[in-house]
Write a protein that binds this DNA or RNA. Structure first.
Lengths: 119, 119
DNA sequence: TGTCAATATTGACGCATGTCGAAGTCGAAG
DNA sequence: CTTCGACTTCGACATGCGTCAATATTGACA
């Protein structure tokens, strides 16, 4: 990322500074991390992640995802937006189509975080 | 109840069968896992886990937790119940006091699951 | 320019959830 | 048996969230 950003996504807030272990998590940190977990904690969004990751080249077109779910197109669009906003999905528009890509680093960081909370 | 349970906690549903990797997560599985993640995806509950894990002997009394938060006692009790119901916290009553203990296995399993979704 | 197709946004609806005060339960100790 | 203290449950309130239909936007192409 060349340009300087002023705000961090939830995923980026997770990435740094690790030791959540024994000492209690600060209120501030919890408030920043919760949205990320909340984004994943939805059945539809959970199911959205793997098809994207599994697709050719690691990215999937929205149209493919629409077909794979029995939900309205706006609803899928909404969920993708949520995942994008917390930094779990990258978004790139090519022509009329929009492709999403999993930021596996962010996902891995949240997993690490989770593992660290309890031990 | 001494043994044989008919229903699994959300945490137990996560434990078995791993490969969420490339093939998409089934709707059924997603519906069972989401509540577990949803339970952790709250700032207060996130902050509740580490003090419990860090306490003497890995368990903490509700009274200790009440003092550590600026929330009403019923609210803390509610959050502990949520964490308990999804299988992340064990609950044992000794005398007048109630002690909660982190089931680190369950927490670890959800972390593993999360790591597996994106790659 | 105008039309069509792919996504996004808006607005509205109902349901879920976090919070509190008040009341209920359940041991322990007089 | 009565009282007290530690929790839990209940009822109510406000806010948040998933969903859809309708509408807007954007790019390709005739």
């Amino acid at each position: 990322m060349s340009k300087s950003k002023l705000t961090l996504t939830a995923a980026e807030s997770v990435a740094c500074c690790s030791p959540v272990l024994t000492d209690p998590m600060s209120e501030d940190r919890a408030e920043r991390i919760a949205p990320l977990l909340k984004a994943i904690a939805d059945p539809v969004r959970l199911r959205l992640l793997s098809p994207v990751a599994a697709h050719e080249g690691g990215e999937a077109c929205v149209c493919d995802l629409n077909d794979a779910f029995e939900l309205s197109q706006p609803t899928i669009s909404h969920h993708l937006k949520v995942l994008h906003e917390v930094g779990l999905l990258d978004r790139s528009k090519r022509g009329v189509w929009v492709y999403y890509r999993v930021r596996s680093r962010a996902l891995g960081d949240s997993a690490t975080l989770l593992a660290g909370v309890g031990r």
